[in-house]
Design a binder for these strands. Structure first.
Length: 491
RNA sequence: GGAGGCGUAGCUCAGUUGGAAGAGCAACUGACUCUUAAUCAGUGGGUCGUGGGUUCGAGCCCCUCCGCCUCUACCA
């Protein structure tokens, strides 16, 4: 990339400072530095006059002639240091003036409190740990440009402390989920991401090629079919926490690569799963926030206190479209839907019109956690039919903030029905039927409840973030096309 | 895929009717031994996303392309 005159000048200055520091005996990029502890711990254990060693990135410098105040920042917070000429000596103090914003330094000194009451370190010795050759983003407004924030997330993390909070929550959530499930006897497993056939959901997979085997491969779109093989194999309670990949568009609730939690429990059903997810999510909120009411200030809070509302698909559609909805002729249904502003082609049958109504008019109004149950069978090929109505399946969709958060099923364990429904879905293309999975089912899979929950969307619910990109450290971004006269240099 | 918005200094942003490219922070020089958005004085820094067009003259108007954001569509 071409550098502007300003960038060239900036780099020249920083390299000159680096030379100054080297001449003063500093290593430009240091080795391990034994710290008293992270900055938050030093602050928590503050004792006047105590000797400490701390390290971090220089986040602010205020020079005042023969003394300098600065802040260093690490993963836990910031801490002020006080650098005095008569404490360091002429040479060391002069060298410190070549320290730039963004550099990493380690200091040794003693704790004291300034006149304004700020805990600080009076520096006796310091060393350079790493020189930064680029400027930090502006300190007051932070880094606003969304593109830079996502493409260079490290700058976002340095400049915008709130961003770090979101990812701390995400990390603690994952840890909590593992603890919660393990305490209940679930076993964490890992199943293939690279698959010869991508099943378990309806989605376009990413395709790749395995050279050694000479065969096409796919990135998984769901772990479901492998987890069910484990039920066949005798694992009663399993879960997998991992990435799925779907070759689709991206928007603020979809990233092509996303994290899901899938859970299966033998001898259970969808009701088992409803209780489990209710307990899991409400306990997570309690653990992470100390309350079950979550969301950003200014948003309508989400109340995760159990029990959550349970409503059949039939009823929730009738609430919006009228009690006689399912008795109306399809033409009348289409007409009503169009009057509501939906785009309904003439070839949609009644069930399809109903689903449009649910998708476009109902789901987005379900703000507080709601289990929508008893969905039409054709929407869900891997779930068991309801005992009292074979046209419906025994599933729930958990909807929060108008968005689907988690589906759960009473899993289909009848291999003959499963074959028929996969065949219907494959529409005559035998290559799309996972025979290996069907063979496993034919060996007998215990009745089971299963569910999947989108971790990214769960983090969105908990943190109140509106975009999936704000809960993923490195969201998918489009490549910037190099200009024709600016080909990457060959090396 | 479609519609709209945005792209100006390292960062955050102004830029009037088409008429000499600006501010704050950051940087540099100097002063200052309790500052914390330090202060004060001074200096440097621009391919106005890209390529073309209209015009005497374009940051501004028109077209192409690139990227980001929002909506929409596809997709569960």
């Amino acid at each position: 990339m071409e550098l502007s005159a300003h960038e060239i000048e900036f780099r020249r200055q920083r390299l000159a400072h680096l030379e100054t520091l080297k001449a003063a005996g500093h290593r430009p990029y240091g080795r391990a530095f034994a710290r008293t502890g992270p900055l938050a711990d030093v602050r928590a254990g503050f004792a006047e006059g105590q000797a400490v060693r701390i390290a971090g990135r220089v986040a602010a410098v205020r020079e005042m002639g023969k003394s300098i105040f600065a802040h260093v920042q690490d993963g836990t917070g910031k801490f002020q240091i006080y650098v005095q000429k008569n404490a360091l000596g002429e040479a060391s103090f002069a060298a410190f003036k070549a320290v730039d914003l963004g550099d990493f330094i380690g200091v040794e000194g003693e704790l004291f409190t300034t006149r304004t009451g700020e805990p600080s370190v009076k520096v006796q010795q310091w060393e350079l740990l790493a020189k930064a050759l680029h400027p930090l983003p502006e300190k007051w407004h932070g880094l606003q440009d969304t593109e830079v924030r996502y493409r260079q997330r490290y700058l976002d993390l340095i400049a915008n402390p709130d961003v770090r909070q979101v990812f701390n929550i995400r990390s603690r959530l994952l840890s909590f989920i593992r603890r919660f499930l393990e305490e209940r006897g679930f076993f964490e497993v890992e199943t293939p991401v690279l698959q010869a056939m991508a099943g378990g959901a309806i989605a376009t997979p990413f395709q790749t090629f395995y050279n050694a085997l000479g065969q096409p491969m796919y990135m998984r779109i769901a772990p479901e079919l492998f987890l069910k093989r484990l039920l066949v194999g005798g694992y009663d309670k399993v879960f997998e926490l991992g990435k799925n990949f779907r070759n689709e568009g991206l928007d603020r609730s979809h990233n092509p690569e996303f994290t899901s939690l899938e859970i299966y429990e033998a001898y259970g059903d969808m009701g088992t799963m409803m209780h489990l997810v209710e307990d899991l999510v409400s306990a997570a909120a309690q653990e992470l926030y100390g309350t079950m009411r979550v969301g950003k200030a200014g948003q309508e809070p989400i109340d995760l206190t159990p029990p959550w509302r349970v409503v059949p698909y039939h009823d929730v559609v009738c609430e919006r479209a009228g009690a006689d909805w399912f008795q109306r002729p399809v033409a009348a249904a289409r007409e009503w839907a169009r009057a509501q502003g939906l785009d309904i082609p003439d070839n949609l049958n009644h069930a399809q019109v109903t689903h449009e109504v649910y998708d476009k008019l109902v789901e987005k109004t379900l703000w507080q956690p709601t289990f929508v149950t008893r969905l039409p069978a054709e929407l869900v090929p891997l779930a068991k039919r309801c005992e009292d109505d074979p046209a419906l399946v025994d599933v729930f969709e958990l909807v929060v903030r108008g968005r689907e958060l988690a589906p759960g099923y009473t899993e289909l364990n009848d291999p003959l029905d499963q074959r028929a429904r996969l065949a219907e879905q494959a529409a005559g293309d035998a290559a799309k039927i996972d025979e290996d999975f069907l063979r496993a089912l034919e060996h007998g899979m215990p009745p089971a409840g299963g569910m999947g929950i989108g971790i990214d969307r769960l983090v969105m619910v908990l943190t109140g973030e509106e975009s999936i990109r704000d809960v993923m450290l490195f969201p998918q971004m489009k490549n910037r096309e190099p200009k024709p006269d600016e080909k990457p240099p060959e090396e």
